[in-house]
Design a protein around this nucleic acid. Structure first.
Lengths: 150, 150
DNA sequence: TATTGTTATACTCTATAACTATA
DNA sequence: TATAGTTATAGAGTATAACAATA
């Protein structure tokens, strides 16, 4: 046997299709964000900080559903680049309040515009109503009951 | 600022929603497949081999769109567990022909049944017509024009 | 006692260059 | 020259345990 192989046994699984599409999107987005020296997670963090100035790292981690330890390097990088400021919370000295700098807001705006172009390239042929429907399904998956860890 | 943070700046991006859902699915699927000692990629490879007995590794890599080097360990593992056989192709001695063993087919059937339960848990509340529509969109994303690498 | 941020660590996933053996 | 499979390697992404400072 040689040539194109069928994935018929996997075709009935939505998770398989989502994973395949997610890989394509991730690879294309990485190239799109490279000129900005941003990655998907760094951009997401910057966007949530810009949309919620003064929030704590724990709230950011919860909003993006990433583990707190994995956020440290991301926030460090944004701070070192002068895109956000990290200040001690006056009322709770354990917490760090995160806010975007003007430079952070400017870079975010440019990067989001590039992501728009990237999505237009990848999703441009798809009916906007279908896209909205897909987004709804993705949101409901996020809220679905999950298997408890052992 | 404390408490739930908004991701409003990211809400308009389909890629963001797909990534978030994909993470949830991946985590739940990993727990589902743990008793079988399979991961998403190992199961996918086994399923494609079972659906295309005798195919070459290069064809398997193309079918799953993963790099050839990353397939080696996956195929090794399946072979060491006696789930597939790897034979030299008679007409092209460079190539390896991959086929499932009876044990491989049995484990695949059990694992696919578990994945069905996992998808019912995650997607059970979603209208089947919408699920089919989402799968269509995911397939079209796979075929979308991509940014060339630098 | 519990929580915030952190360090250390490990495992998985993905990508690239270079090698070997065959064609 | 080109292709199939492999080795080595590096970079991201993700998860868990444990610690210091603070509540």
């Amino acid at each position: 046997m040689t040539g194109a192989a069928s994935d018929a046994l996997l075709d009935g699984f939505l998770g398989y299709h989502i994973k395949r599409a997610s890989n394509v999107i991730q690879a294309d987005l990485a190239r799109t964000l490279k000129p900005f020296e941003l990655r998907m997670i760094t951009l997401s963090a910057l966007a949530v900080i810009a949309g919620n100035p003064g929030l704590r790292q724990a709230d950011l981690a919860a909003a993006l559903e990433i583990e707190r330890p994995n956020l440290v390097a991301v926030v460090d990088k944004l701070q070192r680049r002068g895109l956000i400021v990290r200040e001690r919370d006056a009322t709770d000295r354990r917490a760090h309040a995160l806010s975007p700098t003007p430079a952070g807001r400017r870079l975010l705006a440019k990067a989001l515009a590039a992501v728009h172009e990237h999505e237009a390239r990848l999703f441009g042929d798809i009916d906007p109503n279908r896209i909205a429907g897909v987004a709804d399904v993705m949101r409901s998956i996020r809220n679905a009951p999950r298997k408890p860890g052992q």
